[in-house]
Structures are given as structure tokens and as C-alpha cells.
Simulated assay, not measured.
Amino acid sequence: MNTQTVFITGATSGIGLATAKHFVDQGKNVLFTGRDEAKVKQTEQQLSELAGTNQITGFVCDNADFDQINSLAAHLTNQQIKIDSLILNAGVFYPAMFADNSQQMMQQTMAINFFGPAIMLQSFIPVLANPCSVVYVSSVAVEKAWPTASVYSASKAAFEGLTGSINLELATQGVRINHLRPGVTLTEIQTKAGMSDEQITELVGNMSGTPMGRILQPEDMIAAIDYLASNASSGMRNAAIRVDGGFCLG
């Protein structure tokens, strides 16, 4: 039996890294992307130490750089690699009130959260196995609004809206696309969003008011991602699993 191959975008930290470690532990080949070359190499070494004889390969690829995405797809095609599970995890959150959101930041958010995964999925069609599970890491922001998240919410909702038709178009190829909607999760995304240590501490404290009683961790997403990537979800198309610790109940 051939070892399955999982491809994960944005796997040098946060949910992506936790997902990569999980699939390495399952004995799968893991291919992944990151924007920073040094972090990609460091993550590749870290995962390789856990992997035994399975293939672990990192690629420098920015979701906002469409040439890099297309070049990566061409490389995978040339290497005759087939992907059994594609986890579209890479994303950004730049919190800002809508009135203060610059056109540049709007374009950057849409490029990374919507256009990047859309172009990757399109260019990866030749290397998707039959069957193949595609999991898009979306957000509860598509169903629960809060100030400063308008553009982020729009970028995630846009990709979810795209995939209904794609599920129909790629049905005969055995490709299915579903979504994970994490709640507020403690990752590097807060620091990258420009939040100070004090603001992050306040955020962590605020999440103690959810039914779960704490802020979510990347590891809290693994069971849902594993389910969506596995054959257990073979009957699901364009479905969303919310893992929010009860955040949307408030």
C-alpha cells in the first residue's frame, strides 16, 4: 500500500505546524510551504527527525506570489507527485476598522486568504489524487461579526463561496472540498497582526469567558482536520466544521 501524501500550506507555525506534526506521526509523507526560507528549513529538519523513512519536503512559497505557486505546481507535476490531502491553511489577519483599512491591506488580505489558495487549488488540479480531500482553514469570522474583522471575514467567505461550484466541477476526479472554521486560536497570527504582548494577554483573558473557558490552541484543530482529510468524510462536500470553544454562542 502506497504511503499517502499530505500537502500543507503555511506549516512553519501555528495550526499548520501542528497539522504537519500530526500527519508525520501518522506515517504520511508531508509536503509543506512557508514564506521564510530559514523557517522552512528549520521546520523541515524538525519534522524529518520525527518522520523515519517518510518524505518531508518544505517549499518556500508565498500565498501572495502567484508565480511561486505556479512554479511549485509545475515542479510537483514534473516529479509526478500525487497529493491525497491538500490542507489550505496559510492566512493572515490584519485587524482594522473598515474606515481605516487601506486599499493595500485589503488587497494583501484578499491575495493571501482568497486568491492564493484559489490559484493553488487551480494549478494543483493535475497533481490531486483520486480521491483527494481538500481542507480550507477558514474562520468563524464568516458567521460571527466583530469590529476590525470585516476584510478578513470577506476573504474567508469568498473562498468558501468559490468551492461550491468547484466541488461540482471536480466531482468526477474524486476531489472534495470542505472547510474548518477555527475560533480565536493562539498562534503567531496575533503577533503578525501587530498585537502587543499586553493585547495578546488581554485576548487570552477574554477567551476565559467562552464555554470552553480558555483560548483555543492549534492542537485543538487536529481532530477536525484529520477527519476532513480522511476517508471518514468521503460523504461531505462544501461542509464546514466549527471548532470555536463555544465562542459563537455568545
Rank of each mutant, 00 (worst) to 15 (best):
Q4T: 15
A224F: 07
D100E: 14
E160K: 13
A232E: 14
H179C: 09
T53R: 08
E188T: 14
V134A: 06
Q173R: 07
K39M: 08
A193S: 11
G174Q: 06
V137I: 15
A141G: 09
I222T: 00
P131V: 07
T191E: 02
G245Y: 02
N178V: 04
A96G: 02
N29A: 02
G194H: 11
G205N: 11
L162G: 02
V127I: 15
D197Y: 04
I177N: 00
I81E: 08
V140R: 05
R181K: 14
L216G: 13
I215H: 03
L186N: 13
A229K: 06
L180M: 10
K41H: 08
I87S: 10
N167Y: 02
G205S: 07
K39T: 13
A129S: 15
A193Q: 01
T109P: 05
T33P: 03
F115Y: 14
A149Y: 10
T3A: 08
P117F: 09
R35I: 08
I119K: 12
Q42A: 14
H75Q: 15
A171D: 12
S138Y: 10
D36C: 05
E219M: 01
A118G: 03
A232T: 10
S48R: 14
L47W: 06
W146S: 14
T9N: 12
V204Q: 13
L86P: 10
A158K: 06
Y136E: 10
A239V: 12
T57A: 08
F23D: 07
I8V: 14
I200R: 11
F32L: 07
E44D: 07
D100M: 11
F66R: 05
I8D: 07
M106H: 09
G205R: 01
F115H: 13
G250E: 00
A158Y: 02
T187L: 05
A229F: 03
G14L: 10
M110H: 01
